[in-house]
Simulated scan of single mutants.
Amino acid sequence: MSTLNHLIDEIKERWTSIMYAFFDPNPTLEEENGRKYVEFKCLGKNCRQTKRRYLDTADSMSTGGLRKHVISCWGKEVLKRASTADDIEQARDKVIIPYRESGTLTTAFAWKGKGKPTYSTRQLTKIQTKTEIVRWICEDKRPMKMVKDRGFLCLMKSGRPDYYVPSPSTVSQDVKQVFIKTRSHIARMLQESESRISLQMDAWTSPNHKAYVGFVASFEDQGKKRVIVLDIVAVPKVC
């Protein structure tokens, strides 16, 4: 078994195709009647299929069979989006896993990939509108009351006066929901990490003379360094 494990590690080093991102990152190497084969398990939410690739054939590194399954299971649009990633890990983390778990605000964020952002020709659904507004408010640090601005509503509703725009209170609830879900996800990630976790802190004073302390966790995840901000705390004044 140790020999097989060593062999699969050597084989995986030669895998660069995005097709591998749609399958479990830890495939198994099996042997049947003296023939070795790699067994790939699809990451599709309701997919139970596995794909075998025998190592004693001329096309033992071909991804044609994997591609055919990806298109039938995930669709060409998801494959096209994943293909814009820099590598297998990025495609799996930014496109495939969020797509598989889509349906909630925290997993419906669309990843734009490399190059200029692209925009759909279809009108956003209600959940997509809420998602994009939460992302806009958080990424660009906008006040939630902006969704009631006359100019914003004019841009959103002109030509489609019935278009749904959430209220500031709804946006606030959605942001809190995303925060709670994200916090739980980060906590689970840190608890399940096999890497050592390095905790750092940094203190500074803002231009308005308020003091803050930030807490950051650094660790290794699937061979890559991750740095996550855990909290930023305002330091009370000492009289």
Results as ranks from 00 to 15, higher is better:
94 K>M: 11
112 K>N: 04
114 K>V: 14
109 F>M: 08
101 E>S: 12
106 T>M: 11
96 I>W: 00
92 R>L: 02
101 E>Q: 11
88 I>W: 00
116 K>Q: 14
117 P>C: 10
102 S>A: 14
95 V>G: 05
109 F>I: 10
99 Y>F: 14
117 P>G: 05
104 T>V: 09
91 A>Q: 02
119 Y>H: 11
101 E>R: 09
109 F>V: 07
117 P>R: 07
97 I>K: 02
106 T>F: 12
92 R>T: 01
118 T>D: 10
100 R>I: 08
94 K>C: 13
107 T>M: 09
111 W>Y: 14
104 T>P: 00
104 T>Q: 09
105 L>E: 04
110 A>E: 07
112 K>M: 12
117 P>D: 06
91 A>F: 00
93 D>W: 06
98 P>C: 05
108 A>L: 06
107 T>K: 07
93 D>Y: 12
88 I>N: 01
95 V>K: 00
95 V>I: 10
115 G>Q: 07
93 D>H: 08
106 T>W: 08
102 S>C: 12
103 G>W: 01
104 T>W: 10
115 G>P: 00
116 K>C: 13
100 R>H: 06
112 K>A: 14
99 Y>N: 06
113 G>F: 15
96 I>D: 01
118 T>K: 11
119 Y>C: 11
104 T>H: 09
110 A>M: 06
119 Y>T: 09
98 P>A: 05
112 K>D: 12
101 E>H: 10
111 W>V: 03
98 P>E: 02
93 D>V: 14
97 I>D: 01
112 K>T: 06
95 V>D: 01
113 G>W: 15
102 S>P: 01
104 T>G: 05
109 F>C: 04
107 T>H: 06
108 A>C: 05
118 T>H: 09
113 G>Y: 15
113 G>V: 15
96 I>A: 01
106 T>K: 07
109 F>D: 03
